[in-house]
Every structure is written in C-alpha cells, then in structure tokens.
Design a protein around this nucleic acid. Sequence first.
DNA 1: TACATGATGCCCT
DNA 2: GGGCATCATGTAG
Length: 216
Amino acid sequence: MGSAELRPLNQPGKPLPRAFYNRDPRSVGRDLLGKVLVRRQGRKLRAARIVEIEAYLGQGDPAAHAACGRTPRNAVLFGPPGHAYVYFIYGNHYCLNISCLPDGIAGCVLVRALEPLIGIEEMAQERGLSLNGIGDLRKLTSGPGRLAEAFSITRERDNGKDLTRINSDLFVADDHYTPSRVLTTVRIGIVKAASRPLRYVIAGNEFVSGLRRLIA
DNA sequence: TACATGATGCCCT
DNA sequence: GGGCATCATGTAG
C-alpha cells in the first residue's frame, strides 16, 4: 500500500527498445507495470507511471480488435511492435494501445491507468479539472479514456506512431522502479472472452481503475 | 446506405 | 447502481 506517493523523476529517459514489445502481449503487459509514459511537447513534459494494463492477443482472442482479421482501422496491430494503436470509442473517448509481436502478427496491450508524476497541471488542464485535493488526482488518469485525454492522445495525432524512436513525442521509459506486487484479474468492459485473466495491476495502487473487480 | 454496437466516463439517484 | 451521450467502424442488405 501507500504507493500513491509521487516519486521524483528527474529525467524522462529514453524510449524502451522495439525488442521490449516484440513479445507476447501478456509478457509485455506485465513488464510495462511501473514503467513511465512520457509526452514531450516543446519544453513541457508530462509523465506518469503505468499502474494498469490489459493484454489483447490478436486473432485468437475474441475480445481483441484484431479478432476478425486486418481492417483499415486495426492495421497498426498487424504491423511491427512498439507502435501506438489509438481508437475512438463510445463517441467520446480515445484509448491508447501499443502493438506487440513481430510484423504480421496481431497483438497489443491497452494502457488503462496511470499515476501522475510530472506535468500534473497540464494534465488537469487537458481534463478540464481544477485540483482541490489528492482525491482529485485520481480523476486525471484513472481509466483509459481519462489518461488519453490527460496526455492529449488522439487518433489523428498518435495512431501509428513509432513509440521507440529516440525523438518521439510519446514513448515509454524505464526509471528502474519495480512494483512490489502485481495482481492479475479479468479484463474490464468487455463481453467476449470476459473471463480470461489478462489484466495486470500494481497491487494497492490507488490510481488503478475499477477497484471492485480485483480477484487475485 | 442503413444499422447495431462498443476495450468509457459522467452525472443523477 | 444505473442511464445516457455520441460517433467511427464494420457488416449486412
């Protein structure tokens, strides 16, 4: 418990290499917990720790966007690993995924929740929120739609972006933080293949979404 | 060309 | 705890 404390992050670091993503989405998802999502915008920096991830396995996974094969929308999932797949859902929200596995094989992870570290004012501004306490901090990035808005992630701007490029304005870095304990649960908000244990969260982290659904 | 649906979040009770 | 906004996408016709 108590991992809600904000850890200092003195430098954004460099993007995780493509080899990190060139694996099974379950391994990638598990290993992304504790890593840091970074958005560079001119001199401004936004950074937040990944505390919740879901794996989507591609054509063998009925819940995955890639389940029915390649379409114009999901083409990124079939491309090389380490690229952003951003889609628009429910007429309101964007969600950030990162492609996994070699070129030609679909698979990805969905980033579901973050713990804000740097650029909190900018995130609040993007979310249209005024921060009046630590409780409000959760509203910034606790949920896939929320974190996308806080990081200004849109399909137009980010879909298909290579997150492993050294000068990418969106990437994931490693600041050598290791979660003390990780939980595996069922995925949230889906109907097909809803019982598969493919959601990974940092145990006790209060920025995790859907706290009621913890099973393990 | 029409229609059903969804990897969500917010606001109201 | 539940209803609803809101629209891109895919599939059927």
